[in-house]
Amino acid sequence: MNRLSDFYRLGAALTDYEIVQLEGTGVGEEYYDVLTSLVSGNILDELFDDYNNLDKTCSGHVPDEQIRSSILANPKLGPVARNIIKLWYLSIWYQLPENWRQKYGIPNQTKNKYQDVQFIVSRNAYIQGLVWQATGSHPMGAKQPGYGTWSAAPGNQPHPVNFQ
């Protein structure tokens, strides 16, 4: 099984966005890169396998409680899952909790592209944060919506135009 597509599947469950929307950001692979550089492979395998198993046993409709009990409440997997949510929503990597790092962390190495400290993944990633869509807005400083659009009532639907 392709781990990148596992990453999208888990991401969709954790964020409530569809896989095509996650792929539509164009920065999923960048996030995956960050994740795989900062969290060891066996933990990610366990995380993705756990979710895939839930998905299989629930035939595609995993109840929230299951995700909570097996992933979010799991001391090893929970912090990683929460970081994945924050990657998708905010495009920021947050340093993993102190106790997690002591137990499971990969020591920071200067030659690595990424370090386990707080950082914005990239310029492109920042403007793809899901939080802006969820807010009904757009990333501040990008994806300009056009002159005067702020006067219209909030909502995503184009305004009906009256013409004969």
Binding site: W132, G136, S137, H138, T149, W150, S151, A152, P154
Partner: peptide
Amino acid sequence: DKIGAFRGP
């Protein structure tokens, strides 16, 4: 109600 925050100047 929603007033559409985070939009415009």
